[in-house]
């Protein structure tokens, strides 16, 4: 076991919002099950199926993600720079060293997975390693290792259990598999269960996505606390998000006839999709890091 326990200052507001989200999710979960019970629906089978599916997802999360992303585990000899960075962060945080992988794509990105701290994998894409400088890579890997430290795979697997159950419910209705359990129930009751499952599915999906966004903000905080330099992650996020690429590179004076003023800029703004997004908006993430930078002081 690790002797060193690092104490991170807590963001009370963030912790509270996370806690509230989980409480509401739990309440929806219990409410759903009791209504089903009250209607006399036999849900044992469905819950067992969902549990097995989730269990597989949970226990094989590292292998599943590695296989689906095409990531390849790399040795310290193959990727000395990446390993050195991971080593350094692990030494600073007291986390066991995860396996390190590279995804051979040009899209700059990174992820961490694995059911526990000792079964985790951290992966970076080739595009990330090519485009980001050393500081920015450190910040991104610190973000991913914060997910490992916060046990986010376990948290999100448990949190999404409800929406998985509701999802299987809807599916079983659609394929008529439910008829076996119907017995003396009338079709009206079944219809209620069907609508209820849909509502529960959407609501629990919204809540898990909300929770996911909070976990992202928590990992951003973790990265800033590990590196002590929130601005490194800001810079990395800007590069990964493609915002930097919008900034023109031609000198203003070389633009003929001032036509550049009439390029129609891309429409921006919040939308309904934000509710379903797994990640907070770039602005929200940078605002949080900017606040941390203020309290940590500038160099």
């Amino acid at each position: 076991m690790n002797e060193r326990v690092i104490r991170w200052p807590r963001d009370v507001g963030l912790s509270l919002r996370m806690f509230l989200t989980m409480v509401i999710l739990g309440a929806v979960y219990l409410g759903f099950l009791s209504v089903l019970y009250w209607l006399g629906v036999d849900i044992t089978m469905l819950i067992i199926i969902a549990a097995v599916m989730m269990g597989i997802q949970y226990f094989f999360s590292d292998k599943l993600v590695l296989a689906s992303s095409g990531a390849r585990i790399v040795s310290p000899e193959e990727a000395p720079r990446l390993h050195a960075i991971v080593d350094r962060i692990c030494a600073e945080t007291g986390l066991p060293k995860p396996r390190v992988a590279i995804v051979p794509t040009d899209v700059p990105n990174a992820f961490a997975t694995g059911r526990s701290q000792s079964h985790s994998v951290i992966a970076a894409t080739q595009g990330l390693l090519n485009r980001l400088n050393e500081d920015e890579i450190v910040a991104v890997l610190a973000h991913e290792l914060s997910h490992v430290k916060n046990r986010d795979v376990a948290v999100m697997t448990i949190a999404s259990f409800l929406s998985t159950v509701a999802y299987y419910f809807i599916m079983s209705f659609m394929y008529g598999g439910f008829n076996r359990n119907r017995e003396e129930k009338n079709t009206g009751g079944l219809f209620i269960v069907y609508i209820l499952s849909m509502v529960v599915y959407v609501v629990s999906l919204l809540l898990t996505r909300l929770l996911s966004r909070y976990r992202e903000l928590a990992a951003d905080r973790g990265s800033a606390l590990i590196t002590g330099r929130p601005s490194w992650l800001i810079s990395a996020l800007l590069k990964i998000s493609g915002q930097m690429e919008r900034i023109p590179s031609r000198d203003l004076r070389s633009e003929e006839g001032l036509n550049q003023f009439f390029i129609v800029p891309a429409l921006a703004g919040g939308s309904i999709m934000e509710l379903f997004a797994t990640h907070p908006t770039l602005e929200k993430r940078i605002r949080q890091l900017e606040r941390m930078e203020k309290t940590m002081g500038y160099q």
């Binding site: 023109p248 550049q260 390029i263 605002r287």
Partner: peptide, 19 residues
């Protein structure tokens, strides 16, 4: 991000460099 509420800052697409 720090000043955009008080200052009219252009969108990124118009940030032409002047070397």
């Amino acid at each position: 991000m720090l000043v955009m509420e008080a200052l009219p800052v252009d969108t990124l697409d118009y940030w032409f460099p002047i070397w």
